[in-house]
Amino acid sequence: MSEGLDYKFLVETFFVALSGVPTALFITIVALLVALPLGFLLALTRINQFPVLDRVAQIYVSFVRGTPVIIQIFIIYSSVPLLLASIFEKYNIEMNVYDVNPIWYAFIVFSLNTTAILIEVFRSAISTVSKGQLEAAYSVGLTNVQAFRRIIIPQTLVVALPNICTATVNLIKATSLGYALSLQEITLRAKVAANVGYNYVEAYIDIFLVYLILCSLVEYLFKLYEKRLSRYRAVGI
């Protein structure tokens, strides 16, 4: 205990933790692919006060935002297998629910979670683009879809991008909770390596560094993209 940090272990475990990055990124990307379009569409229902869907989205957001992610994971992880088991039984599907790769539960939880966050992000971003531009688009003969694709969404994205970046970084960090699903991601891998010789401090430093590097990199990429997208805003200001 008195010899301080085990540097050899520190370096080795850094790479063990690093090997969990693909899993963390995979979950992040799947969650974003689901949440970006879904969040945008549900934000539209909120803005246009679309009957029923609007209320459903509102309740959904408060449920997700008002509960810890770890509890959402536990709920999905314990309830979905039961649900699946009854479905499998009903349709005579020969499959053991406990063979399902736990990464699917991570996909579900993090997609649901990020969708709720992005609904609110897009809701405020869309309302910054004046309704007049949409009317102008109609008046020059654009359809609804064309107007959104060419005029509204590009401007919404620029406004929303800093918040999407925050949501993405939070999402990457939250994938560390995947250890509760025994997912082979960054945190779990380093912790398992530490179990052998009780080198927890080294392992935690490694985990810390891997998330820090990963998140900084993601933030940097978002900054670059934001700069590219917002050319039309940068010039005059």
């Binding site: 531009q133 008046s139 005029i151 590009p154 620029v158 039309y232």
Partner: peptide
């Protein structure tokens, strides 16, 4: 709308273009 054009009080130009 293909036959009518509209000029708005607040211009309503597409800010990203």
């Amino acid at each position: 709308r293909q036959k009518i054009a509209f000029v708005f009080q607040n211009y309503n130009l597409f800010n990203n273009k």
